[in-house]
């Protein structure tokens, strides 16, 4: 291993702003409080050092920024206010998109193309909501733990309802695999007689662009949610993620 010549420190892609690394005291508070310190030989303090010393590519190529859950304990406790979350997330940004681990980037690309991470078609989505609405209204729903539910006369899921007070995003895992779980909120809305709605398109509430360090996708998804709210005139967005 070659010694670093610190007089000719390369400009680091991960130390864009002083508060990302330059102000670090190397006290190790971050590393002591981190549940994944030591995994693959990395820890938050080392990540900051790597950023400062121009060794960021080693961090970018490692699994560690993806095993770290960006929980923010390190940044919360840092006495120097080092922006560790931004740093780790940017290490993810610097990963080539086809090397993003697992399904995360595929989900982002799917969301950009089809409006949700799992690519559920609009027809299936609308039909599912209508079908579940009918079950709720008829009282034929049974809970996972044997709960019995009454019939909810008049219940249906309003889609793109003009003048709704609240517009609610949806986590695509629910229509895909756990549709009855959406009813927890629906029963509350029924009791509160809320004037609510869900979007017809672009209803995804899970922003994987946040996780993969993809700023364009992150912003686009937020833009769509706001656009949906404006379209129906909803003053409030409920984002249960």
């Amino acid at each position: 291993m070659e010694a670093l010549d610190l007089t000719k420190r390369p400009k680091s892609k991960l130390a864009l702003q002083p508060e990302w690394a330059d102000v670090c005291y190397t006290c190790g508070t971050c590393a002591s409080g981190c549940p994944v310190t030591g995994v693959d030989g990395w820890d938050p303090r080392k990540a900051v050092r790597a950023a400062l010393l121009g060794l960021e590519q080693e961090l970018v190529d490692s699994r560690w920024p993806w095993i770290c859950t960006v929980c923010g304990r390190c940044e919360y406790m840092c006495p120097q206010g080092v922006k560790l979350n931004s740093l780790i997330r940017y290490a993810r940004t610097l990963r080539e998109r086809d090397k993003v681990p697992g399904v995360l980037h595929k989900g982002v690309a799917m969301c950009m193309e089809k409006g949700n991470n799992l690519g559920i078609p609009e027809f299936d989505y609308l039909f599912l909501l209508a079908d579940l609405s009918k079950e709720m209204e008829e009282g034929t729903v049974e809970g996972h733990h044997g709960e019995e539910y009454p019939a909810y006369p008049g219940f249906y899921v309003p889609v793109d309802k003009e003048g709704a007070n609240i517009i609610v995003t949806i986590n695509s895992k629910e229509p895909m695999g756990e549709p009855e779980d959406m009813m927890f909120w629906w029963r509350i809305f029924y009791a509160a007689k809320e004037n609510w709605t869900v979007p017809k398109q672009n209803w995804e509430g899970v922003n994987w662009g946040l996780f993969t360090g993809d700023d364009d996708a992150l912003k686009e998804q937020c833009r769509r949610i706001i656009e949906n709210a404006r379209k129906v005139g909803a003053k409030t967005i409920l984002y249960p993620e």
Partner: peptide
């Protein structure tokens, strides 16, 4: 968190 639920680790 941070996408780890959908990551392969």
């Amino acid at each position: 968190g941070g996408g780890a639920w959908a990551a392969p680790y």
